[in-house]
Design a protein around this nucleic acid. Structure first.
Lengths: 229, 229
DNA sequence: TCCTAACTGGAAGTCGAATTCCGGTTCCGG
DNA sequence: CCGGAACCGGAATTCGACTTCCAGTTAGGA
């Protein structure tokens, strides 16, 4: 007992059990994104370190493998599958991420960041409605081919809504701007704010889950159409 | 080894594992709904029997408890919780339903049947668009307060789409008629058939999951609006 | 009322998947 | 080129469900 995890994962779940939360002792990594919010280690911890070359390489491999596996099988894919895909042992995954949930969170932030960029790109368009349309269509495209993303999107409410990651803050800010512009132009239903929009995107993700290839635009169109005043 | 289960549950899942499928030896019950599709027991089975009074009572208790628990916690609720709620032991649940999945399936059929009735009611309305509107709104209302239903609805594709229960056949028939009438009246997008509509309802279920109370009508409105030609 | 097949509850058994542990291997400063 | 701190891999452990088992209880016909 030398260090203490500050982030960890909230159990949530129905009766209180279900998803485990096993304390997951830190392995002093996480040097990647998300600036160290160190709570000041009482026992003079060596703070953050550079991370050896091979370790950094493996960390990336794990992240990439996890993205691929989750993309195809969703977050219920197993750690062993990820490890195999990454060409490492499960132990290596755990050296970099204290729990499976931590791994999922890392990827979630990555997804959020990409979404924020897409929203920013859309904001560059002059027409407010076209911007929204482009963003929705693009997001749909992405979700159609990423099962992991769809799942995570369905849980955003529980995991990140209460202002967790910086990436999400950015995404929210950009999308809100997108919506505000559309409101000002008078082309978007007044009763649809960010929360409602997010929920609808969730729904879109769900709907597209079973869409035949090349058919998902129907769902995006229905939602877009329904959003118009 | 005297009897053999015919229904059972397909594993599905990502890598092939996940939801178990442990053979679940039959306990010769299932006297309830769904006419016995007996495959003709090779060893002269006693066929269906009346089911003792207390057994019938407990079966109903279990079903009711399961509905309540799933409604609140979703299908990830535990068998023990259901048993406690029903005031019986888990063994009793298993005498009536070979697996948890079988219990879920039974409730699913129940839900389907209710949905079919609602669709039939809507069909009684003279105006095609109004009928569709009423059905969508009503379905939304129901899903808002039943987490289990939402989850099951999201899995219909895997579990029942390929024509499983009679209840679903009925639901599908009624809804199809609802859609056809709307098409004929020229008020419904031509590219939305039963599969698309079902997917959209799924999405609606997802969206409403996080709706603030009394706000879910927004989502239903958006979808309905989007469905119009 | 009595007998026995059915039914009941819940402790014990299984099982899949996450997480931990540790002997062997690999970077990298001196 | 060497030594040892870091890092690896994957077998072993842990954990939380679901499912099975069986000694005891009960419904309901003779």
């Amino acid at each position: 007992m030398t260090e203490r995890q500050t982030s960890s994962v909230k159990p949530s779940g129905p009766t209180g059990r279900s998803t485990r939360t096993p304390a997951g002792r830190s392995t002093r990594t996480s040097a990647g994104k998300s600036a160290a919010k160190s709570a000041g280690g009482p026992a003079g911890a060596p703070a953050d370190r550079p991370l050896r070359a091979d370790a950094r390489r493996n960390r990336r491999r794990v992240l990439d493998a996890a993205r691929d596996v989750f993309l195809e099988h969703g977050t219920e894919a197993q750690m062993e599958d990820i490890a195999r895909r990454a060409g490492v042992g499960v132990g290596t995954i755990y050296r970099h991420f204290p729990t499976k949930q931590a791994l999922v969170n890392e990827l979630t932030e990555q997804w959020m960041a990409e979404g924020a960029v897409n929203a920013a790109d859309a904001l560059a368009l002059p027409d407010a409605w076209e911007a929204l349309t482009v963003f929705v269509r693009q997001s749909t495209e992405i979700m159609v081919r990423d099962r992991g993303l769809r799942e995570v999107y369905g849980d955003i409410g529980k995991l990140l809504d209460n202002g967790a990651g910086t990436e999400h803050q950015q995404l929210r800010a950009n999308v809100t701007k997108l919506l505000d512009r559309a409101h000002e132009a008078g082309v978007l239903r007044a009763d649809v704010g960010y929360p409602q929009f997010q929920a609808l995107m969730c729904g879109l993700a769900m709907a597209t889950t079973r869409a035949a290839p090349g058919e998902h635009h129907v769902y995006a169109d229905v939602v877009l159409n329904g959003l118009k005043t």
